[in-house]
Nucleic acid binder design. Structure first.
Lengths: 364, 364
DNA sequence: TTGAAAGCGCTAACAC
DNA sequence: GTGTTAGCGCTTTCAA
């Protein structure tokens, strides 16, 4: 294929471009008759029993080298692959880890997912990813995957699930919470100290001389939103400032547009803030865009602090000052907690708080 | 465990953070004993045979209503859930669709993923997401999931796989290509006409009076990169312009940083371009950031056109002019093609090209 | 060291 | 309409 794919590039490309234009390339597909062999076939071919093949397959050492070689040869010759479905049924595990994320599109989750994925692979697991859209119904159906034994355990990054945890049997299921968590439920979790982190953001603003500090927050049904609001309030109070309640905006979505809309609303107040703390970088980036559109300069007219430190934060204009969460580590830890719980269902699994840090750039 | 996990947070967190960081948490495997009931238990409880329970479970209509009710009651009372592992073994399908994406972090893929997910769910499938990191080895191991019957089919968004397709048996496996595809291979695909799309981008720049147009492209091992380069070249030639080869930059990564670096390099030429076409929005956003850092104004000093139209494109400063791909539809179509292929392995599945469009904003 | 055989939990013939 | 039963492909005692 190396050679055939290296046919004069231009000629091939052009013809294929033409084929593409028409959009009509017909692809008569051959029958995918994959995996016809079973362990019995291999056994027969190697002149041994299925038990022996199984032993070889699983690397048991009680097989004579000569026998092993014969089996290995038969496997190779037949192109045999283990049917994991059968193996899973037998061993009662799927080696799949369910990950529920509220919004795949939010770059905040991408790095967390990578962390989960890497640890999962290290331990022979695959990640079954589900976008819940923060919808309770869908979430519930995803938990069913656990009940149906289609996944061995779950990592939930989705706030909506947490509250459900108490009400249903989901607390008997093998899952852990990541980022959004309730320490008072018996579910293992990993996250950061949202209260302190939000306080850090606000204290930074305070240190820069801002006194009129707005907050753009998620609905307080989210625990992290509650904690960040408390952190915001706490820092302000400690500085002897009574925050204007009109400066607290609630959004139902963390996307760019929501940030822009909230910022616009904020600046239309008779008495607008001179700084804003948004509880997500995506929100903050939307805020900056909205502000710019309305003719305000950041940080001169109004300072902006975000939360998360997604890779984009450094790229926008002005680069975003934000609270960094250790995203990759958050994901890795969540996966380890879950694996730990699976390995030892009766042991108590700890809750973990990871450190955050303030990253000062130009927006505040 | 609820109580034992309620130990003072600080002390617990610290020790566990250390254990987890080390990655050495020991994971001796024990049997997770959830879901103790089987279909036999339900049958017994309802005073019927397992076959009848199975019939009820699968909604067959040859069951007397009274019997059905009895079974349903028994199911409810026992909290029984189907063991999908067993069902899958029996029916030889997992109802899992594998999706291979080169980089979860690239927002371009997020909307495609949503499209896939929605169609998959509509048809009772779940999406098993794998980040290949554009790595051939990992990709290969993901294809193994198909061979092992752990997934029924796959959607591959990853360039690296395409070339592999010819060389290995992967062309007998049930998969489809999305976004990156080779019309000359017998694999169903969906994508856009990259040649024309790139041409449209360049013609827009031409129409705005630019003549010195640079290109920031992926390595030409990618088919889409080849086609876009051809489109770029074609449009330039048609306008009677001989493009300076030094204005063509190749990046090995589509992230923001790569765009910034390429832009910087471009502008250090003795004779820099006055416009740049980047083959990805993430790249283009990095270009803008890099340019700004170096003191260039967009679009006054240099115009920038991107590709994809991710949601962020409208948020950056200046808002990005770009080629929009119908991302959601791309994903939906890919899923449909795959489902179609699964439903009818012998039918020929078409290749599909979806329309793109130029979105003019302020960067060019 | 190897084999025979019993299931894992389910579906689908095939009987009644 | 309902029950009996034979597997799906594998792992794992238990014997030999």
């Amino acid at each position: 294929m190396a050679t055939s794919s290296r046919l004069s590039r231009s000629s091939r490309s052009i013809s294929s471009v033409e084929a593409l234009r028409s959009g009509k390339a017909d692809l008569s597909t051959a029958a995918p008759e994959f995996g016809r062999h079973s362990i019995a076939g291999v056994a027969e071919q190697a002149g041994v029993s299925v038990a022996t093949v199984s032993r070889v397959l699983n690397g048991h050492d009680n097989v004579r080298p000569a026998t092993r070689d014969r089996v290995l040869a038969a496997i190779k010759a037949s192109g045999y692959r283990v049917n994991e479905l059968a193996r899973n049924l037998r061993t009662a595990e799927s080696h799949l880890l369910l990950t529920m994320v509220p919004d795949i599109g939010n770059p905040f989750y991408a790095e967390i997912l990578r962390g989960i994925d890497s640890v999962a692979h290290e331990h022979g697991y695959f990640m079954l990813l589900c976008d819940t859209g923060a919808d309770l119904g869908r979430e519930r159906s995803y938990f069913d995957l656990l009940r149906q034994h289609r996944a061995d355990g779950a990592i939930c990054l989705d706030p909506a699930a947490i509250h459900q945890a108490l009400a249903e049997d989901s607390d008997t299921l093998p899952w852990v919470a990541c980022c959004e968590f309730d320490t008072s439920v018996g579910v293992p979790y990993v996250g950061i100290d949202n209260y302190t982190a939000a306080g850090d953001a606000v204290r930074h603003l305070l240190a820069r001389g801002h006194r009129r500090i707005g907050l753009i927050n998620s609905a307080d049904s989210y625990l992290y939103a509650q904690h960040r609001e408390l952190g915001y309030l706490g820092a302000l109070c400690a500085a002897g400032i009574a925050p204007d309640p009109r400066w607290r905006m609630t959004v139902t979505n963390l996307d760019y547009a929501a940030g822009g809309a909230a910022a616009t609303a904020l600046m239309q107040l008779a008495d607008p803030p001179d700084a804003v703390f948004a509880v997500s970088d995506t929100l903050a980036i939307g805020v900056i865009a909205g502000l710019r559109e309305a003719g305000w300069r950041v940080p001169d007219d109004i300072a902006v602090v975000g939360f998360d430190d997604i890779s984009l934060a450094a790229q926008v204009d002005p680069p975003l000052t934000t609270i960094a969460q250790p995203m990759r580590e958050l994901g890795e830890t969540a996966a380890r907690l879950l694996l730990q719980r699976l390995a030892n269902p009766h042991a108590s699994v700890p809750g973990v708080l990871l450190p955050h840090r303030l990253v000062v750039r130009k927006s505040a």
